[in-house]
Amino acid sequence: MSVKTPSRLEKVLADGYFAVTTECGPPRGSDLGEITRKAEYVKDHVDAVNVTDNQTSVTRLCSLACCIHLKQMGLEPVLQMVTRDRNRIALQSDILGAAGFDIHNILCLSGDHQSFGDSAQGQNVHDLDSMQLLQTVRRMRDEGTFLGGDTINRPPEMFTGAAANPFADPFEIRVPRLAKKVAAGAEFIQTQCIYNLDKFEEWMKGIRDRGLHEQVAILAGLTPFKSAGMARFMKNKVPGMDVPDDVVKRMADQPKEKQPEEGIKICIESMQRLKEVEGVSGFHIMAIEWEQKVPELVEGAGLHPRPGA
């Protein structure tokens, strides 16, 4: 498989390895030290690190600045970009800003609604949606033009990704929806956290039936539970999340002090099972404020050392 960008993530996938990505949430302040600490935990165990873009609509230090910081530390950043907060001028401008610092990966998202965050009275933009942002990035890269038609001097070279939630409703359009993202230009997909492996495998079968796994690299999303309380919260409170009862029970059956260990174990077992699923090209580990556990998860799943390390 030939590569189209200088992205390390793209190269790992093209060389036929399972890719491993993780994510870091920027701080609610201007202390880049927090990002430095998170990056130190994960740098030898992943191929690339996503930086979230004001996730859950809570105002934070911007994704682009954190990506530049990670790049300068020698890590490979994935710029997450939501269409909630910027119009097409600002989106294209920030893409160029990232390209100026040789950031070679982007994840195109619509973003959580602002009512979940600290600015519920603010406007949302959604000039483009996530699929249209994918098209925009691909156009800027492949045709070297802005949406307005003018030529870009030194176009961005970005491996272009999107998110997929195999568990959201309606289930029947989840595969067609992925097909749309591929048609819009997605080259890699990071999925919502997977706890219902049977349902994920059913989705993957639908992906394979349409040959989509040969057109896009699917990175299975995972988040380890720290506690039974977290499992219940994810099950009951997070929209679009599918946590089966037996997983919650498995966490709850452990004494409190053993629950973090059990969460890690479930996560590693999931990765081991998913490695066998045809069409899964890697893993996206979202260890929310638990980044120090990423090395243990990657090693436990037999994904260490990373290629080229």
């Binding site: 619509s110 359009i173 679009g240």
Partner: peptide
């Protein structure tokens, strides 16, 4: 979110997130 290519990942049992 006035999405033209929806639904987003927050659609649950026919309801908005």
């Amino acid at each position: 979110k006035r999405l033209f290519n929806g639904p987003c990942g927050g659609s649950t049992q026919g309801k908005c997130e």
